[in-house]
């Protein structure tokens, strides 16, 4: 079954003469349990697609079907129980005046989860934070720990699809490795479907099976990561990105 089915998606910002197209005629499908990557430079519209799916950008046209539900102007509560998002900057995605406990219990409360106390402990264990972190404020946490809390929040309602918006680009490489490993484990445990946006081909290649390469709001190519590794990219822009990204010393 397809988890996400996007057809002819256009997204724009502004009205009238100032209307700027951010995404132009994009179509792609993501199967259940698959991990799909969106790659492109800043301003290519890759994050905008995620935001449009999540319902944070109301100005779009086209067809979007997520987990069997055709999306309209508004998202239902059931939609948010199936689809959650993790943001780029862990310093901006946690409310500065709320403890980890408050963040998680509110998320669960909104989804009507029973037995909140026990679940919070379980969630914190899942994302590799102990119970000692439960009553801390964001300013008492490091960047990696904050991102773990953000991931825990997105898992609070047991969603089946996670939208990942550059979840590691603000972190140090060693912390990035920990978070990527965590995402790999969670995907296996919770049978999650990922759509991940990143500017780093290495990161996307690590976590995803298929990649959509974006430029100026359009898909230039969709290809399997294995093909990318074997340098089978057809489009010159994809090849250019590949050349810039291969920077290993070994």
């Amino acid at each position: 079954m397809t988890a996400i089915d996007i057809r002819n998606l256009d997204v724009w910002f502004g009205v009238g003469a100032e209307r700027a197209m951010a995404v132009k005629d994009v179509s792609f499908q993501v199967a259940d349990g698959e991990s799909f990557g969106l790659v492109g430079e800043s301003g290519s519209g890759k994050s905008t697609i995620l935001r449009a799916i999540a319902g944070l950008v109301p100005t779009w046209s086209g067809e979007m079907k997520v987990a069997g539900e055709a999306l309209g102007a508004r998202r239902s509560k059931a939609f948010y129980r199936k689809v959650q998002m993790v943001f780029q900057d862990p310093y901006a995605s946690l409310h500065p005046r709320q403890t980890v406990d408050r963040v998680l219990s509110e998320a669960m409360g909104l989804h009507g989860v029973q037995d909140i106390d026990k679940r919070i402990g379980q969630l914190l264990d899942d994302v590799g934070l102990g119970a000692g972190f439960r009553f801390r404020y964001p300013h008492q946490l490091s960047g990696g720990q904050r991102q773990r809390v953000a991931i825990a929040r997105s898992l609070a309602c047991d969603p089946s699809i996670l939208l990942l918006d550059e979840p590691t680009s603000a972190l140090d490489v060693s912390v990035q490795a920990e978070i990527l490993n965590l995402l790999t484990d969670l995907r296996e445990e919770h049978k999650l479907t990922y759509v991940m946006v990143s500017h780093d081909l290495g990161v996307v290649g690590h976590l995803c099976e298929r990649i959509g390469v974006m430029k100026e709001g359009r898909f230039v190519e969709v290809l399997a990561v294995d093909d990318m590794r074997r340098r089978k990219a057809k489009d010159p822009y994809t090849r250019h990105l590949l050349d810039s990204s291969i920077n290993s010393v070994r």
């Binding site: 060693s174 490795a177 490993n181 290495g202 990204s245 291969i246 070994r250």
Partner: peptide
């Protein structure tokens, strides 16, 4: 590539590498 300090090695190995895929990254 001859670096010896475990920290340097850790930094090198924790970067996901498109050409040499691994199931888990070294932490």
């Amino acid at each position: 590539h001859n670096a010896k300090h475990p920290y340097t090695l850790g930094l090198l190995n924790s970067v996901p590498d498109l050409e040499h895929p691994r199931d888990r990254l070294e932490v």
